[in-house]
Design a protein around this nucleic acid. Structure first.
Lengths: 239, 239
DNA sequence: ACAGGGAGGCGTACGGCGTACACCTCAGGC
DNA sequence: GCCTGAGGTGTACGCCGTACGCCTCCCTGT
């Protein structure tokens, strides 16, 4: 009975276990509540123990990003460049969307980690495989920007609507006076059950719309043989 | 000699003075070093005094955004919708660029403040004045996303390049093996003094490129009478 | 079989943060 | 001449990230 099961010592931590626990905990309690202390407690360990596995909190967050980016589905083989890129980015979106805090953390990173660079490299490779020049690919990547991760900044964070209907009506009138166009847009959207119910748009639609505008634009420039040294801006010049 | 100048009491603070001091201090010492304490010290006041003028730090940051957004040049009158919007966004860019921390703070805001809504409302109004449907305008605004503020996420944060040339060459080979496309892009850009020198692209060019791809895309959809209920995605359908 | 070392975990402590709460101090209006 | 309330103060609390030194096993080489 003095076998290895005698003392049920917790399996020793390692970097990967720490990172996965951090992701899970952030999912659970939110990224703001994720501290070295809360994570340590979750792992049944003293806060300083974590520093044996990550250098500091920044590196912890970097690692969490790597875990998520690692969840992105691999590129589709044999597809048209546009479909392939579209699909890849949408699957990045899926990966990021399953962790509500992900976009915030990705945006806050200062240095790209290897896994992140892998993803970007593969995306660039897809443009190149589609015949894009290095030049156009470069600008296209920049134009995608954070959309390559599958998220867009929430534009109209819902201000708290008053519960009292009378107060709400009054506030509505007030808003309509100052922000006529916003109100027009918000109310128009809520008519149908379509793409844009007021107070909460169809994010997926909005995302794909923007992505397609960009990809279509890239495609057109590519077909035109656009070159950054020729005309500085893509504008016009369809015919 | 018992006049009002006898005791040189500091003019009492007010919300506006606090916000402007915060902006100036953030410009000076960086947004990370801006704390209620450091700001209070700069104003020659005890930290808690600030809470008589702003509810908490979040509201301070909101107010700082308002100050900056207030610096955006008013819309150009009488211009084509596209030029007008282009110009307005580029002037937003100018305003935000003069405070390096601005984009980070804007992105972190959860609730839009009145001044922010004013800006968005005016942008929407410009689309509408250009004949855009409410529907298309809505999606266009979402597609612009944070680009309406004139910034793009920095995509390739420069990893520290080793000083020793031999080590640098070794690292280069290693990177080239793992990230062939990234390296191709980075090195191709550095050939000419043009738009994309390695290690630091021409941000302004990249920004305008992306903006123009989007605006051109919107224009095309507008001319086609695009409607979100017709086809879900803008893709193709030029001819 | 045993000594040595290193990886993993612990405990304490420090300085900084945002901010709650009670208090003080006057200038201005009654 | 009193009152009031806006503006400013002082103290304190709980949280944070993390530096530093120590302990405790397990693995390894001999």
């Amino acid at each position: 009975m003095t076998g290895p099961a005698k003392t049920p010592r917790r399996a020793p931590l390692n970097r990967d276990r720490v990172l996965r626990a951090a992701v899970a905990l952030a999912d659970e309690i939110g990224i703001d509540a994720l501290s070295m202390r809360s994570l340590a407690e979750r792992l049944g360990v003293v806060p300083m123990a974590l520093y044996k596995h990550v250098a500091n909190k920044e590196e912890l967050l970097d690692g969490m990003v790597e875990v998520i980016v690692g969840e992105i589905a691999p590129p589709a083989r044999g597809a048209d460049w546009k479909d392939a890129i579209r699909q890849r980015i949408l699957s990045a979106r899926q990966a990021l969307l399953s962790h509500r805090w992900a976009s915030q953390v990705v945006e806050s990173r200062r240095h790209a980690t290897p896994v992140v660079l892998d993803y970007m490299d593969s995306l660039i490779g897809m443009f190149r495989a589609g015949g894009f020049s290095v030049d156009l690919t470069h600008h296209a990547m920049h134009a995608l920007g954070s959309r390559m991760w599958g998220f867009t900044q929430e534009l109209f964070p819902t201000p708290p609507p008053p519960a009292d209907p009378e107060a709400r009506a009054a506030m509505f009138d007030q808003l309509a006076a100052r922000y006529p166009h916003i109100i027009e847009m918000a109310t128009a959207g809520s008519r149908d059950g379509g793409s844009a119910p007021g107070g909460g748009c169809d994010d997926q639609f909005e995302f794909e719309f923007a992505l397609d505008v960009l990809l279509d634009g890239f495609e057109r420039l590519h077909r035109q043989g656009w070159d950054s040294t020729a005309r500085r801006h893509p504008t016009g010049a369809t015919a």
